[in-house]
Simulated scan of single mutants.
Amino acid sequence: MKVIFAGTPEFAAVALQALHEAGFEIPLVLTQPDRPAGRGMHLQPSAVKQYAVAHGMEVLQPLSLRMDAKDPQRAAEAKAAHERLLATDYDVMVVAAYGLILPRSTLDIKPCLNIHGSLLPRWRGAAPIHRAIEAGDAETGITIMQMEEGLDTGPMLLVEHVAIVADDTTGTVHDKLAALGGTMIVQALRKLEQGKLEAVPQPEAGVCYAAKISKDEAALDFNLSAAEISRKIRAFNPFPGACAPVNGVNIKLWAAEVLDADSSVPAGHVVAADSQHGIVVACGRGALRLTELQKPGGKRMPASEFIKAFPLEGQRFA
């Protein structure tokens, strides 16, 4: 089969590599335009573009695929992309974390399959891994679905479950799902070749929307329970990184353990910060032992090293 691939971040690059190594012909790759990144804010290609270029694949980077876009440049690029798709000999489009909406004009050309990082219909939308961890879900997974105009509403083709364990972060779950997604999309296309890929409508019950993560969400509220805060710390690792200020210094919190002991100390106060107890902070219910922290401009440190450079005893996280 000939496959057009559309994706942008590392999650998608893993799937592109899996398709390429499985022997599928990939005549065209769509990815988002290069973006400024790093301290110098130089334009950086996406992970998908890097893989595609390294393996001699043609890359197209339109600003939009909507030919009715109000911005003339976006509309012109969308029209050019549409004409390029019509001129390309392909059997199916595979989409993974592309970041652009596929309009009806694109979906109508050939079948479009999407690699989605959740157990649909739970966590439709942009940030399914973050939201699953933040909500305390016991499991997540990959759904290979047939795309339609609705947001992640299409029928399901393949589903695999993955447990979310106590110390999982968005980073660790991402890596598990990226690898699984690559394996599953190869399986799905093999079944499609054989005419054995069956579509199952999504259940109407249990629909959740995984809103895009904003940097504002990184600020922690210690009036929440220790369990809730712990889930947020894991959900926002590695992006955007949970944080809380101490004496005006914004400290990143990367890992923590939930303690059952309640305290009469106000939420946010550091109950202990020593080599024996670690860094223990009172919460609205229960307490947290912070195990990995980072001050601005510094490196991530275990709590035992952090308190040597940044004493916290008697302080309070605002």
Rank of each mutant, 00 (worst) to 15 (best):
Q202A: 05
K299T: 13
A138E: 13
G171V: 00
A199T: 05
I115L: 06
E77S: 10
S225R: 02
E58N: 13
I26C: 04
D91V: 01
M41E: 12
H116V: 00
P111V: 01
L288D: 07
D71K: 13
A47Y: 00
A75F: 10
T88P: 07
G268N: 08
A218S: 14
L113I: 08
I115M: 07
V271W: 14
F236W: 12
Q202G: 09
A218Y: 03
D34V: 01
K2E: 06
A282N: 07
S264K: 14
H82D: 11
A235D: 02
V94Y: 04
G56R: 01
A163T: 07
R35G: 06
G284M: 08
R285V: 12
V271S: 12
G314C: 10
L151P: 05
L30A: 09
A287I: 08
F236G: 01
A282W: 08
D216P: 02
V162W: 00
A81G: 02
M67I: 14
A303V: 05
L177N: 01
L180P: 01
I185A: 01
L86S: 08
A166E: 15
V265L: 15
G297K: 07
N237H: 13
E305L: 12
G99Q: 11
V265E: 14
H55T: 00
A22P: 00
P311L: 11
A15L: 04
M93L: 15
L288W: 11
A272T: 11
I4N: 05
R285Y: 11
L120S: 09
P36E: 08
S105Y: 07
N114R: 06
Q61F: 10
A273L: 09
E58I: 13
T143L: 04
P240Y: 03
C243L: 12
K2C: 00
D152G: 04
F11Q: 03
G38V: 04
S263M: 06
D260N: 12
V159L: 13
L86I: 09
E58S: 14
I279G: 08
L177V: 01
H82T: 11
A219W: 12
T172A: 00
P103S: 05
D274I: 10
D137G: 03
A15Q: 15
A76R: 14
I229D: 02
Q187P: 00
F236E: 05
A272D: 14
I109V: 15
L177H: 03
V173T: 07
F11A: 07
G136Q: 01
A199V: 06
F222Q: 07
A127C: 08
L107H: 05
V258N: 04
S46M: 06
F306H: 05
L312A: 06
I229S: 02
A54V: 00
K299R: 13
Y51D: 01
A267T: 03
